[in-house]
């Protein structure tokens, strides 16, 4: 599945998007990303699956597009 990163997270990951297959659910994906990118674990972000914000764990399929978005404060 495609994972999109926004804002400051791009710098942390070193890429705007990643392709990661076979993540069964959001919690598994988060644990994987936090292990690979520890700075991400300390960052605040929301998750959207197929352009809908989700707040609880949910199952993922390889066709899903997952987006990680941090808060912005600048103006």
């Amino acid at each position: 599945m495609k994972i999109l990163f926004f804002g400051q997270l791009v710098e942390m990951i070193g890429a705007k998007e990643l392709l990661i297959e076979d993540m069964t659910d959001i919690d598994t994906l988060k644990a994987f990303l936090h292990q690979q990118f520890p700075l991400l674990a300390q960052s605040k972000y929301i998750i959207a699956v197929d352009q809908e914000m989700i707040s609880d764990n949910r199952k993922l399929e390889n066709h899903n597009i997952v987006a990680l978005m941090p808060p912005f404060s600048g103006g």
Binding site: Q8, S43, K44, P70, P71, F72, S73, G74, G75
Partner: peptide
């Protein structure tokens, strides 16, 4: 409803630090 509580100071860049 998006970000229920504020991030810690310094964990998010502002324009002074990050540029715009």
């Amino acid at each position: 409803d998006i970000f229920s509580d504020p991030p810690k100071e310094g964990s998010v860049l502002n324009c002074v630090d990050a540029g715009v």
